[in-house]
Amino acid sequence: MSDDLPIATLLGFGPDGWGWALVSGAGLTLAVALGAMAIGTLLGALLTAAQASRAVWLARAAAAYGVILRGVPELLVVLLLYFGAPGMLAAGAALFGLPPPGSPPALLTGCLAIGLVSAAYQAEVFRGGMLAVPRGQIEAAMAAGMGPFARFRRVIAPQVLHHVLPPLGNIWQFNLKDSALVSIAGLAELMRVSLVAAGSTRRPFLFFATAMVLYLVMTSASTALFRLAERRGQRWAGGR
């Protein structure tokens, strides 16, 4: 019975140990968070552009997307995608007369679910960042003959980046923590591994505490990284 196994064995990398499972679980957690962040950045930028669009229906649709995805529990989004995706895919396939393709991989579903939520928050951040670039500096770029691409690349993007880095750091932390919800979809990320280990060894406190420590390592390491990046970019703004 594993009740008697010492902690070092349980958390170790031996045959009775869960060490490797936990480490690879943490790796998958990072993968989900990274995938979600990337999806969120892409979709978030599109949403920001849509909200600034002159086409009223497009701007309204983007705004509505934000209100809904920020007002609904992340768990519901994960559940909807996990349980709803096979049916949606089957319906889509049926339109083309194809057989139902079955469930998409859990990693993809997880990234997409967290990414859809992340996009709603990132769009807000980008919008704020765009507003923070002084109008006069954009005019100076126009007056110098820079086209839209050069203006964005040389003047707008660097300044927006400076303004959005701290809030993006926050969103990254939320992605990291929200990735635990994907455990419900059966993906063996850190939360899921600790749950399985807790169940099969009947040592829930030990494994949940270990998982907490691993999450803390990931969140505080990313805090440190973001702070480093901010400090680098901050020389022109009066930082060190």
Binding site: P134, G136, Q137, E139, A140, A141, M142, A143, A144, G145, M146, G147, R154, V155, P158, Q159, H162, W236, A237
Partner: peptide, 19 residues
């Protein structure tokens, strides 16, 4: 942009690119 490139503007508030 070609037209603007033939001119240059000096603004009341300088509008130097702060970054």
């Amino acid at each position: 942009n070609d037209l603007r490139a033939k001119t240059a503007m000096v603004f009341q508030n300088f509008n130097l690119w702060t970054h």
